[in-house]
């Protein structure tokens, strides 16, 4: 019993190390400097427990501004605009409101894979060295939904959660010219 268990755990540990990135709905680029543009590619590998994905909702975190989602053939796109928590300086212009949520509506079968793209500006109010999480709700038929919204508590990592929010590591701003 113990050997099977420990062997299983070993295998599991190794495999999850090897491909943790592919396990969930994730971002393609998992690190980016602050005070710069960021192209987010959301990778959706499966539906909710076998059911096809009918809607993907993305919550834009505070400090991420000037969001421009990329239209997607076969998918309807909507954005929800709302005021930011504070005014952000964007190329010397104060920005006080913008896109806070993107909603793609369409159909993606469980056995298929797709990517959803938006571009945004990561403001310098974000702290380098920390993780930025972008909560995603993947809605399927029959009221089923996978909510990739778990934000790891201090001392824990995304691997400790079943439905971690996709995250990226913030890097120091590039030297300005």
């Amino acid at each position: 019993m113990i050997t099977i268990r420990s062997r299983g755990a070993l295998v599991a540990a190794f495999l999850s190390l090897a491909c943790a990135a592919q396990a969930h709905t994730t971002l393609e680029t998992q690190q980016a400097p602050v005070a710069s543009a960021y192209k987010a590619v959301l990778r959706v590998g499966h539906g909710c427990g076998g059911a096809p994905t009918l809607k993907l909702r993305v919550r834009i975190p505070e400090g991420v501004i000037n969001v421009k989602p990329m239209p997607k053939p076969g998918w309807e796109m909507e954005t929800v605009k709302a005021p930011y928590g504070k005014a952000y300086d964007y190329h010397s212009e104060p920005l006080t409101e913008g896109v806070r949520e993107i909603v793609w509506t369409g159909k993606l079968l469980d056995e298929h894979y797709d990517e959803f793209v938006f571009r945004a500006h990561l403001t310098d109010s974000l702290k380098p060295g920390t993780m930025l999480y972008i909560p995603i709700v993947q809605e399927c038929g029959d009221g089923k939904a996978d909510r990739w919204i778990e934000i790891p508590a201090e001392g824990k990592s995304a691997d400790d959660y079943k439905y971690p929010a996709p995250g990226l590591k913030l890097l120091p701003a590039k030297a300005t010219h």
């Binding site: 299983g8 295998v11 599991a12 999850s16 491909c19 592919q22 396990a23």
Partner: peptide
């Protein structure tokens, strides 16, 4: 406790 394809138990 099962091992899924991605190795995540």
């Amino acid at each position: 406790r099962v091992n899924s394809g991605d190795g995540h138990p």
